[in-house]
Design a protein around this nucleic acid. Structure first.
Length: 722
DNA sequence: TCCCGTTCGCACCGT
DNA sequence: GCGAACGGGA
């Protein structure tokens, strides 16, 4: 078979990876080096050289977007549908396995998936039921703990608390949480992975079966795998497997959600005869941008090591803009993008990146005022919206009475006279008898354990849900079921009352949900897999794929996003904003070398998003949490070789001054000295306690007689010697 | 039940 | 400085 169309478009390193002999291969793929292309061509290579049949291939990614892109590009290259192949996310594939083997995994057949919000609510309810003080046991922390343990593969029985009371309590809640999940037939995200792992670990027959079947396993973004994902892959690999994993240790930015950068090294140590291929040729950025990024990341320790290069153009120097404050920073960026637009470029070629999502507000304000179209990535997703989750909760409860999370959500939404007292009685009954909330409610009704009014309200609720169940049984199409349920639920009338101006949006979203159900196509399955009913398929889809954030993605607009959200994307013009100590690197990462190195990787990710032009900005004064701060320039700016940057200062953007000021270690004291008595227009008189920074960045700490100690930027404070 | 005033705490956010 | 989240009161 002629495979030239697979190998010809590749460079030497890519070809080496794609056409490598079977075995375990680690592809160290730098930013912009064509890693997705390598993955796709590897699969095509397997198939077209008859080394593998589509159904022996498993390709794993982290996001639905990446999985979708992979499938799409693969079908384009192959020229036919890749249906028999398993291409999906870790969670999606785990879910598929658990659906097929629910019995072996000790699940109920119609188990439902909880998203993070559902999980949070369940934990909060649990803490209240256990009468634990929420200020000592914040639900967020408990949730963090439970997910962290699951990511590490630990069940409550695996955790020894060693007389640590706090830990002991945590484990206690963890255990109660597990029981609650089992009782309600619910599975959270981390549980999908852990269960799938345990399924292979404890069931030799199934493990063998899948080891035999998936002879070729490919993994994308390997540096983001957590402990349990790694162990799952290892089980699946068996003894002789062919693993093709692609990753970049320099782009590992998710340790805070369990990713183990060490897995890159472990893979080489623990998987047999692992070969390493480096993809270092970059097809995205200018040589200048790459040189800056290489220099920055070289400050990290323990890297596997690589250096990006390009045979493309040198490119422009990297401007560093010193803004007076964050307002002025926004003004500068917008002016630049307007100029760029006037030169004939599109707005959506420009991206504004920031460390924390709160920073977007200032940019949004300025953009709106200047009537420049923009899009903020991230934020609330479709299936996470309250009204959408309400509607789905009706569907869930109508189908599965044991779903306590759905019950809690809608028992009094819209309000139907079932107040907290009545619900509390139901919760107590459920706890007492170890039954579902629905069952508890029915018991209370039958035994007339509450006042007539409450019982009446219960009866109406039961009638409502029962009628919805009839809808499900008697209606062919899922979207018609949803439509009927939404109408019957009274949610539309309920949200019409919303006075905050969101009423229209909410009702639109409910309508959109019906459309989503109509357009939903169930994912492909194998012949030997039991097919779920369409409703369960749709509910799983809603939980696993939360959908897009903003609807108007087609308008040509400036792209605003956090650095994390920018990973994997590229733009001709990129602004890296807020390059200040305390913001980036973030305050909470500054004192820990591991966290600091992750911040540096984040900066590296940001810089390597830029194709043609990269501009860094920082402010001398920044309002943070309502407080004026005088941050120092980010160390990451100092880590870029000075010959690669040009500096621009607010006030005179035309005259690019020397870049030396960022590197000047010798402080210009401007006549200010320790112990010097000074006077300030607003704060009055005081004594200098401290000096920091250099040149125009000099900051002084002054102990004022009237207002106490303050840090000021000498250049703006206009201090007079006394 | 709902409204509103107070308080709290405040990266990153896929699945 | 702001938004979510809670608690008290009508």
């Amino acid at each position: 078979m002629d495979v030239s169309h697979i190998l010809d478009p590749l460079n030497d390193a890519q070809r080496l990876a794609v056409a490598a002999d079977a075995g375990n291969l680690l592809v160290l793929a730098g930013a912009g080096s064509g890693k997705t292309r390598v993955l796709i061509h590897r699969i095509a290579w397997y198939i077209e050289t008859n080394q593998a049949r589509p159904n022996s291939i498993l390709s794993v990614t982290f996001t639905n977007k990446a999985a979708g892109e992979m499938r799409g590009r693969l079908e384009q290259l192959l020229g036919y549908s890749a249906g028999a192949m398993w291409v999906g996310t870790f969670h999606g594939i785990s879910h598929r396995l658990l659906r097929a083997h629910w019995k072996e995994a000790n699940l109920v057949q119609n188990f439902q998936i909880m998203d993070s919000d559902d999980q949070y609510r369940m934990i909060r309810r649990l803490l209240r039921a256990m009468a634990l003080d929420e200020s000592k046991w914040p639900p967020r922390e408990v949730q963090w703990f439970i997910n962290g343990q699951k990511d590490e593969g630990l069940r409550p029985k695996d955790i020894s608390s060693d007389d640590d009371f706090h830990l002991e309590q945590m484990v206690h809640v963890y255990r109660a949480y597990e029981e609650q999940c089992a009782r309600s037939g619910l599975v959270d995200f981390a549980e999908l992975l852990l269960r799938a792992y345990e399924l292979f670990r404890d069931n030799e027959h199934l493990r063998r079966h899948y080891q035999d079947r998936f002879r070729h396993v490919l993994v994308d973004e390997f540096q983001d795998t957590n402990t349990i994902q790694y162990r799952w892959l290892k089980l699946l690999n068996g003894h002789e497997g062919n693993m093709f994993v692609v990753g970049d240790d320099d782009q590992s930015i998710y340790s805070w959600r369990g990713a183990q950068i060490e897995n890159m090294q472990r893979f080489q140590d623990e998987f047999r005869d692992t070969e390493l291929v480096r993809l270092e040729q970059n097809y995205r950025s200018t040589a200048t941008i790459l040189a800056a990024a290489n220099a920055l990341i070289a400050n990290n320790s323990g890297r596997i090591g690589k250096e990006l290069w390009t045979d493309g153009e040198e490119g422009e120097l990297i401007p560093i803009y010193t803004a007076y404050n964050e307002q002025e920073e926004a003004r500068f960026i917008i002016e630049n993008v307007m100029d760029w637009h006037r030169e004939g470029h599109r707005f959506d070629e420009a991206a504004v990146l920031y460390r924390t999502s709160a920073q977007s507000r200032v940019f949004e304000d300025h953009l709106r005022r200047n009537n420049v179209p923009y899009r903020v990535h991230g934020g609330f997703r479709f299936y996470e919206r309250a009204e959408v989750k309400d509607a789905l909760a009706y569907l869930r409860l109508s189908a599965f009475r044991s779903d306590d999370t759905a019950f809690e959500r809608i028992i009094n939404t819209p309000t139907r006279g079932i107040g907290n007292r009545s619900v509390e009685a139901v919760r107590a009954k459920a706890r007492e008898n170890n039954i579902s909330l629905w069952q508890a409610m029915t018991d209370i009704l039958e035994n007339k354990l509450l006042t007539g009014r409450a019982l009446n309200a219960f009866q109406n609720f039961i009638n409502l849900i029962d009628s919805m169940t009839l809808d499900i049984e008697n209606t062919e199409e899922l979207h018609e079921v949803l439509d009927a349920i939404i109408k019957r639920s009274g949610l539309i009338a309920h949200y019409k009352k919303d006075t905050s101006g969101k009423a229209e949006d909410r009702i639109e979203n409910l309508e959109e949900l019906v459309t989503a159900a109509q357009e939903f196509e169930a994912p492909p399955t194998d012949d030997d897999e039991p097919r779920m009913d369409p409703m369960s398929e749709f509910l799983a889809h809603a939980a696993l794929e939360a959908g897009e954030g903003q609807a108007d993605i087609y308008e040509d607009s400036i792209q605003l996003m956090t650095l994390h959200a920018a990973k994997g994307l590229e733009y001709p013009l990129v602004f890296l904003t807020g390059m200040e100590e305390g913001l980036f690197p973030h305050q909470r990462s500054k004192d820990d070398i591991r966290q600091l190195e992750e911040e540096r990787r984040l900066c590296y990710v940001g810089m390597t998003r830029a194709m043609k032009k990269l501009i860094l900005t920082h402010a001398e004064v920044r309002r943070l949490y309502g407080q004026e701060t005088y941050p120092q320039v980010s160390r990451f700016i100092r880590e870029i070789p000075r010959e690669l940057i040009s500096s621009v200062r607010f006030g005179n953007p035309e005259s690019s001054s020397s870049s030396d000021e960022y590197f000047d270690e010798e402080p210009h004291k401007q006549g200010l000295g320790l112990g010097q008595r000074v006077s300030h227009n607003t704060f009055g008189q005081g004594v200098i306690l401290n000096l920091e920074g250099s040149g125009s960045h000099t900051r002084v700490q002054v102990n004022f007689e009237e207002v106490g100690t303050k840090w000021l930027v000498a250049a703006y404070a206009d201090l007079q010697m006394v």
